[in-house]
Computed example of a mutant assay.
Amino acid sequence: MSRPLGLSPESSALPRAGADYAEDYFAWTQDQVAALKAGRHDRLDLENLAEEVGDLGRSVKREIASRLNVLLVHLLKWRFQPAFRSSSWTGTITEQRGQILDDLDESPSLRPYPAARLGREYAVARLKAAGETGMPEAAFPPDCPFALADILDRNFFPEAEA
């Protein structure tokens, strides 16, 4: 009988106690959770735990920045290519806003973060919008034409440029 994924008969679905961070990340995480819940602080890998907790915070910030970028690209396309508006664009705009707002609700200390990232994300979004639309970069304003409150407003869809 063949074993899927090279599992040996000794393998189990449960992590082994004292799992090594570098050898089996998932098993390590489960071992650390079990040690925390059991109050077994002597089994905690404090150095790697500290690194992972720090990475969690950074990953939320990266997610907000990435979603803000996608949102800006779609708002630019919505405004500057009204003939191509679609339910797909509406869905993307709605999804990105919702996820950003959810992240900010879960981590209120990050509420100022989108404003701090807006200029940088807009500069990249402008380039992406130019590439995706085939329009010259100069067709898009050099500075973000949308207020952050509008960008995150579930009901805001910019009108076409007159």
Rank of each mutant, 00 (worst) to 15 (best):
G119T: 15
L127D: 10
S66G: 14
A130M: 05
L75D: 02
A129Q: 00
E10P: 01
Q32N: 08
L118W: 08
A149I: 11
D24L: 13
G134S: 01
D103C: 07
F80M: 01
A162P: 15
E95G: 13
F80T: 01
V73I: 15
E106I: 05
R154E: 14
R120Q: 13
I93M: 14
L72I: 13
S107L: 14
V33D: 05
A50Y: 12
R126G: 03
H41R: 04
M135S: 13
F140C: 03
T133C: 07
D150Y: 03
P158A: 07
Q99R: 11
Q81V: 04
D150R: 11
E161I: 09
E161V: 13
P158F: 06
V33I: 11
L104D: 01
A160E: 12
E63K: 08
V124S: 04
L152T: 04
P82S: 05
P82H: 04
W89M: 14
E52H: 12
R62G: 14
R3P: 05
L101P: 02
A139P: 02
N69L: 10
D55K: 13
I93N: 02
L101Y: 06
A123E: 11
E63F: 06
V53A: 14
A123W: 02
E121S: 01
S107V: 15
R79Y: 02
G91H: 14
Q99C: 04
R16S: 13
A65T: 09
E159M: 08
L148H: 14
G18N: 03
L75A: 03
E51D: 12
A129K: 01
A115P: 15
T133L: 12
R154V: 12
D55I: 07
D150W: 10
E137H: 07
N48Q: 11
L44A: 07
F140V: 03
E106A: 15
S2V: 10
L49F: 09
E121V: 03
M135W: 04
T29L: 01
L44Q: 02
A65H: 10
G119I: 08
L104H: 02
S59V: 08
A138M: 09
L14P: 09
A149Q: 11
E106C: 08
D103I: 00
F80S: 01
R40Y: 06
V70D: 03
L36N: 09
P108W: 02
L76D: 00
A162N: 12
M135D: 04
L110T: 09
A27D: 07
P112M: 05
K77H: 03
P145S: 07
V33C: 10
A130Y: 09
E23R: 08
S59E: 13
A50W: 07
E132F: 06
R97G: 01
L110H: 11
R117F: 10
P136T: 09
W28H: 00
S86R: 12
R40H: 08
L104F: 13
P9V: 14
G134F: 04
A162Y: 06
W89L: 10
